[in-house]
């Protein structure tokens, strides 16, 4: 049998299936809560309550939202390319779910690794799979047959390509320090010190690029609800539109997860080992709160500012960071 990934731990197939289902269920349980959390927090940041009518504390709001989106007509513009239009929202969902697999929730316990899969090329896998999501945005925007969608898709393509470079370079410092691409061994190598301290610049660049990759403010140019009427998703409605939104939150979780694993010591924390996934989740949640906080604070950048920040500031800084790290790793 052709092995898809050379994992470092052989597990029974049924364990892997159970793990996938558990990760899938937990993440898809957290996602709707994340939307409520975001809306409520944004409200609080603006002296408002946010949604608090549906259910206790507005917790059933996502249920109402999804119910509304599902019951809507799946409208498709006349001059849209049918297959690509349908494929558009599906690819990002697929990519998001795939990249969830490598987030490490804990160490190997009783012969079961508390992660979806420990690929030796973990970070590479993250970038490879993450790039598939952009095809979704591009195809969706292009196949809609609308100028706003096309503009939004072009913008997102340019933005995502620009920031992917700095993002990769930012992670390279961590990879060099730990000497591995696997997220699990990267977490293991943070036993003494979390990489956020020696790689603080890398962390900053990664988070900035992460904001851009997930299309969040201040880099939400592709969506730009005020000027581009949601950019590439202008022509989408109903659950297709909903899945684009879903993906946005999933990507936030994935970026938070990668950042937590690479810079914040992953599952490491005081307490017994069964608390590991909780620690990981807590660190992810902290980063998600940072995402929300930044969204409540910063306005959208102008497009040329975005580009010059990406190419003129982040890229040289990330390169310099890699260079300095490389020299230090060799010297010490």
């Amino acid at each position: 049998m052709l092995s898809i990934a050379d994992t470092q731990l052989a597990e029974a197939t049924w364990i892997m299936v159970v793990k996938s289902i558990v990760i899938f269920a937990v993440i898809f349980g957290v996602l709707p809560l994340l939307t409520v959390l975001e809306r409520k927090l944004i409200g609080r940041f603006q002296h408002r309550y946010g949604p608090n009518r549906v259910g206790p504390y507005g917790l059933l709001q996502p249920l109402a939202d999804v119910g509304k989106l599902v019951s809507k007509e799946s409208f498709r513009p006349e001059n849209a390319t049918k297959t690509l239009f349908i494929l558009g929202p599906l690819l990002p969902v697929l990519a998001g779910v795939l990249s969830l697999a490598i987030i490490p929730w804990g160490d190997v316990q009783d012969g079961v690794g508390l992660y979806g899969i420990d690929v030796p090329i973990g970070i590479l896998y993250f970038f490879a799979v993450g790039s598939i999501a952009f095809y979704g945005l591009l195809l969706g925007g292009w196949s809609s047959g609308s100028k706003y969608s096309l503009l939004g898709a072009m913008r997102s393509a340019a933005q995502l390509i620009s920031y992917e470079v700095s993002m990769g370079l930012a992670l390279l410092g961590v990879v060099m320090m730990s000497g591995s691409l696997s997220l699990v061994s990267i977490v293991h190598s943070q036993g003494e010190i979390w990489f956020i301290l020696p790689q603080f610049v890398g962390f900053l660049i990664f988070m900035l690029a992460g904001f851009a990759e997930t299309n969040r403010t201040p880099f939400d140019m592709p969506e730009a609800d005020a000027e581009l009427v949601q950019g590439f998703m202008t022509e989408y409605g109903g659950m297709r539109f909903g899945s684009f939104l879903l993906v946005e939150y999933m990507e936030i979780l994935v970026v938070s997860g990668i950042a937590a694993a690479m810079f914040l010591g992953g599952w490491m924390g005081p307490g017994p080992s069964f608390l590991d996934p909780i620690w990981m989740l807590a660190k992810m949640l902290g980063l998600v709160l940072l995402f929300i906080w930044v969204r409540a604070t910063l306005p959208r950048l102008r497009y040329d500012q975005l580009m010059s920040l990406g190419w003129k500031v982040l890229l040289p800084l990330a390169t310099l960071n890699v260079l300095v790290t490389a020299i230090l790793v060799v010297v010490t």
């Binding site: 002296h47 906080w293 930044v294 409540a296 604070t297």
Partner: peptide, 21 residues
Amino acid sequence: ETLRGLKTTMARLIEGPMTIE
């Protein structure tokens, strides 16, 4: 300035909502 902005919004969060329902 970004940090200053973050401080400002966090202060609003701490002040709590002004909404009259």
